[in-house]
Every structure is written in C-alpha cells, then in structure tokens.
Nucleic acid binder design. Structure first.
Lengths: 238, 238
DNA sequence: GAGTGGTCTAGACCACATG
DNA sequence: ATGTGGTCTAGACCACTCA
C-alpha cells in the first residue's frame, strides 16, 4: 500500500521526463486540461503538481502561452543550506572521507571565544582539525571549536560518519538551526599546502562560520580552507 | 479597481494579524471551514492562502490538530539575496563607486555562450568590465556578459547608478529572479593586481554566476574577482 | 478567436489528532 | 466521536497570449 497522492505521481513523472531529457529545457508541456485528461484526474489536481514544480523554478508558467521547462542548467542543487560536508559536494563522488588531524581540549583564542559567547568562566572548548577528501583527492581542511558546555566528552568519542554535525545531533541532541558564514580567499601556508597537496602560496577558499542551535546558542565556530577545484555553489533569489 | 485575488486578501489579513501581535506565535488559527465561512469563499480558496504562508514557515499546519502561527520569529535579515553590489557591502561604507574599464560588443567564448543558452544564431553579447571601490579602496573587478537579445543598445547607454541590474530593470524591463553562483579562489593576474592594488599572485575571491529573469531566461553571465578584505557574507539555514 | 493559465465554487471522502 | 487538514472532483468565468 503506497497510495501516493496523484499530484505527486504526476510531479514525479514530469521530473523524470526532465531529468532523462525527454523534456528538454524550454519545451512546452501539454496543457493543464490535456494532462488532466491523460491522467484521468481533474484540472485542479494537475495544477497542484505544476504549481509545486513552478515554485521550485523547474517549470515556468505563462498565462495564455503555456507551461515550459525552465531554461536553466540542471545544476539544480541548493547549497545555501546548513548540512554535513558530504552533502555539499557537487557531482556524485564515490567516496568522501574524513581524517582527524588533531583533537585537543584547550582554551580558544579571544576571537573564537567571543564568537562563541564564552565568558571568562568555562572558556574550555574542544578543537578538531579534519582533512576531507573527495574521491581520494584532498579537498578541504576544517578546524572546528565546540564549547565544552555544549558537548562534554567530544574529545574522546568517535565522530558519527566523520561528521561533527551528525555527532552533535546524535550524541548531544544539539538541534542545529542556522549559521552566519563568511567566504573569502587565502594563500596556502606550508602546513595547509602539505595537507591539501598544493604548493605554498596557492589560492584557497577560506570560509568561517558560527553555527547556532534552535535556541540561538552558538555551538560551533569553524574555519575551513578548500581547494578552488571544489567551489561553493549556491542559489541567490531576488 | 484593485481586483486582488481573495486568497491574497486573506493572506494579507493573517499576515497583518501576526505582525501586529493579534495572533502571537503558537496561536491556533480558526479552521479552514470557519475562515471560508467568515470570508464567504470556498475552502479551497482559504487553503491557497494558508498553504502559501505554510510554505514560508510563517504558519505550521498539523493534520487533525489545526493551523498554528509558527513558534519562531523569522530572522530579520535575509542575506542570500540577488541584489546590486552596493547592497552586499558590509558595514556602512560612505562611498561605493563604479568605473567602467571596458565595454564592447562581441561574440562570447564558448563557455559563456553555453551558460547563456546562446545558439549558433544571434550569439552576440555585450561585455562590461567594471571596477568597484568601497570608501576609495579597490574592492572587486566584475566582468559581465549580457546577450544582445536581452539588452540591445547596452553598449552605448549610461549605467543607472553604475548598477547593471538597475539598468536592465529600468531600461529593458528585465525582472531579475534568481542566479546560480559558484564561489572559489584564484591568484591575481598582473592585470587584476594592477586594477585592485594588490601584488600578482595574491589570493582573490573568484565568483561566477548565471542570472535568470522571471521567465527563466539567462540574462547575464558574470565572473568577479574580489579582494579577501571584502568577504561574501551569508546565512545558512538548516 | 482559440487556447492557455489564474481564480474560484460547492461539494466529497479520507487520514489523523485530540478529547 | 468530533473536528482538523489532505486530497480530489467537475464544473465555471476570467485575463492573457498568440496566430
């Protein structure tokens, strides 16, 4: 028993036809009335499917003219989302690995302590430096700071699938909610160059962010250096 | 005559009541049937209003329970927006200037033509290279390609306040809608270094994007090089 | 003028949450 | 058991685009 609603079936059919190239970009779809007849449903049901695809910009609707496949390229992944590293990687990598380069418990530098809102008391935090590889290619080095008050014992336990976000959620019940992120550029230091298999001085994408949970508490401060071959992809909306 | 659709009227009423505090967070709204009766419309029309507010997370709907005002106040500022350069600059710069370094009409390279969806016919485009300064400091070089079919005559006219987006909107009625953007890093070439007052080889933020209008048509392909002192800031949501 | 999408109706049956 | 939202119908009139 999987009685999917008809509008989801129709939606899925259209999506398949777009992804397989049966419906190339700019193609006009059959009219609402024709689709309704073809599926044996009412026009309102067809509209539920078309409207949802229209809202996601996969289809473009023009009154009086018809419904068309959006001319945009299929790089349709949305990346302005807060989520684990591996979900942000473009394409379909076979393997995404994590190597922990360093893990220690220490007082964070002033800049980090301030971003995390750590007062004079309890300014202890866990620092984790990881190397992420994509298809055996070194892609990024990530340095994360998590206050001890958020995740006591993070120093010792295993990371769930190498993901700090998964670990915070599964082990400490931290509900990640939002992050403020800055993206810039930097030259590779000797150390970074060695880890990332580039030459010292080569350009890297530098990002830092402060991550908050659903209560608004800062739970992580992180900085990362990523090779330019692995750009940050995002969609901007008007 | 302002024949606004009824579902927009209902939507606006509810939004007003939320914003004025008449409907505080977590409050339950009247049921669909009751709202339908109150407004003298059918239930499907009420659903159009409630569904749209639900998609924006302003309302939360629970089957069998009711429709509620979302418990969290929406974050005040959205940052992942498509907008003119000066609106993206951090802080409160006194001056943001634009110098046009180059403007020509030519056939774009294959990569650009493909991104813009230009077929063999009519592959003419206008190329504009601009230097943006913030408080007299060179901040970014932007190179834009706009198909001649989108903005014929762009080669000659003035740019509205130095903004290509404003110009496209005001002069050609182009409604910008969304852009897919990639952010990476690159070393400054001799030319870029001279324009941006950095040394050749210094790291720069490299971004490229394809901008679409409300019909889904690609209207601009752009690449920019920005000094690391002017990072890209964004908010990530879970 | 013919066809399209945008809006709307007045019903219906269902799955689900709550008392 | 009652009421809620989720899905769906078989019509209708309108504004708009395009030939």
């Amino acid at each position: 028993m999987a009685p999917r609603p008809m509008y989801e079936v129709i939606r899925g059919d259209i999506l398949d036809q777009i992804n397989t190239g049966i419906l190339p970009p700019e193609t006009r779809l059959p009219s609402e009335s024709e689709l309704a007849e073809r599926y044996g449903v009412s026009r309102m049901t067809v509209r539920q499917a078309l409207d949802s695809l229209n809202r996601e910009r996969i289809l473009v609707r023009r009154r009086g003219a018809g419904t068309f496949v959006s001319p945009s390229r299929p790089g349709s992944r949305r990346v302005n989302r807060l989520r684990p590293f591996r979900d942000d990687v473009m394409g379909d990598p076979a393997t995404v690995t994590t190597a922990v380069l360093l893990r220690e418990s220490t007082a964070p530098p002033a800049e980090v302590a301030e971003a995390l809102g750590l007062a004079d008391g309890g300014r202890d935090a866990t620092r984790i430096v990881r190397l992420r590889t994509v298809d055996d290619e070194p892609a990024a080095v990530q340095e994360s700071w998590v206050p001890s008050t958020v995740a006591p014992g993070l120093l010792r336990g295993e990371l769930v699938e190498g993901s700090l976000y998964r670990t915070l959620a599964d082990t400490w019940g931290v509900e990640l909610s939002w992050a403020d992120q800055q993206i810039s550029a930097a030259s590779a230091t000797e150390q970074l160059a060695a880890w990332l298999s580039v030459r010292p001085g080569d350009p890297l994408i530098r990002a830092n962010r402060t991550t908050h949970d659903s209560t608004g508490r800062a739970v992580e401060w992180a900085v990362s250096w990523t090779r330019p071959e692995f750009p940050f992809v995002m969609r901007l909306e008007a």
